[in-house]
Amino acid sequence: MAKVYTSSQVASHTTADSCWIIYNRKVYDVTEFIMDHPGGDDLILDYAGKDVTAVMKDVLEHEHSESAYEILDDYCIGTFDDTITATTTTTTTTTTSSTVLSSATEDKKQALHRQRMQLLEQEEESKTYGMANFAPKETDAATDMKTSQFLDLRKALIPQFFTTSFTKEFYLEQVHKPRYLPTPAIFFGHPLLEPLSKTVWYVVPLLWLPFAAYQFSKSLALSGGANVLSGFSFGLGLLIWTLLEYLLHRFLFHVDDHLPDHQIAFLLHFTLHGFHHYLPMDKLRLVMPPTLGIALAYPLINLGHFLFPPVMAYAVIAGGVVGYVMYDCTHYYLHHAKVFKYHFKEMKKYHMAHHYKNYEDGYGITSKLWDAVFGTVLNYGTPLTSSK
């Protein structure tokens, strides 16, 4: 396991006798390299004890070759985690102590949020995602691996979690930085498991709409002619799904800050939703695979029968399933189509902003309803230019 360093530890090494820098959440002791640096020792010392990620990626500031990154790897001494702090405070009362701690925690959370979003802002797509003809630039897998030291896009992704070690913050930053491949990524790399990870979008309506029709017909059969109750329950099911869509996206798929700092936790997060932020334009992994859909649907269907009488339960389930189909198909549509200008044009920009501007807000896919209710509406900030 690589040693973890804090910002204060790195910041204490700023001289020619001991010079450390941070690059892509890793710490490097470049003391021995200072005199050999082609740009001179002053350039390195100017950034001693600091994060040089943005500087090294800025070709106008100081362009680096692939060999430069290879040389840098030789000086890596550990990983960087600025969420670790050692603070000693003396307080006069419990109330004062709690207030100070709460304020410090909130400030730290805001700083972490700004740091994460600044990484997204370095990408070209953070400025072009609102365009009608938005098309992300293809990622050079070899260069990405050298510069990010995260996952190798040329290999099966899941097995790499068993042979690598990341800090939690490094994982979250990298998995939310979008990459783009012209073909579907290799997920498992196993001839039997790999096909199970791929789902074409039209499988969702073909599988679930007949099930929804069957559930609604059961409700009608039990209603004894009270079709209004079945219709009302169907509409209630649709509404319940919109809330579930929001809650699942926010509290299950984006469990980020509460994610345990463990490789297995990262693996589960990546499999469930992290992959979608890592490779958001992978067409065959944009809708929910049937196996995962059934696993999530089973307890929800049982809950529906527990909460409602049968005549209502069947219709509520039917409405919920139709809502889910609309959600998954809308999700695919927003990513891969030139959408209809009414409602969908705005929702496309809104969802693209969730990927390229701020993934800690904007959880609604089909609408902004519950984002407005729970205060997580995503604000775009600077205006975006659009193509007609």
Rank of each mutant, 00 (worst) to 15 (best):
T199K: 02
F162V: 08
F161Y: 07
P184R: 08
P184C: 11
A156G: 04
S165K: 13
A185W: 06
K198A: 06
Q160T: 07
W201F: 15
K198L: 10
F211T: 10
Q215A: 15
W201L: 10
Q160M: 05
P191A: 10
L172M: 09
L172I: 12
Q160I: 06
L157G: 08
F187M: 02
Y171R: 01
T164N: 15
V203W: 02
T167L: 04
L196P: 06
P191Q: 08
L192C: 05
H176C: 11
V204N: 05
L153G: 00
D144S: 15
W201T: 08
T164F: 08
P182A: 14
F166V: 04
W208R: 04
T167R: 07
L193Q: 06
R179E: 05
P210N: 06
K155L: 10
A156I: 01
P191V: 03
H190S: 12
S165V: 05
H190P: 00
I158G: 07
W201Y: 06
M145Y: 13
H176P: 04
Q174S: 12
F211S: 13
L181A: 12
S148R: 12
T147G: 12
K155G: 11
P195V: 09
H176M: 05
F162L: 12
P159N: 06
S197I: 07
L172A: 10
Y214K: 10
F188A: 12
E173Q: 13
W201M: 13
F161T: 02
S148G: 10
L192S: 06
A212W: 00
I186W: 09
V203C: 03
V175C: 13
T199I: 07
K198M: 11
R179V: 01
T199M: 00
K177Y: 12
D144R: 13
I186R: 12
T183N: 14
W208E: 14
A212M: 05
F150H: 08
I186F: 02
L193H: 08
A212N: 01
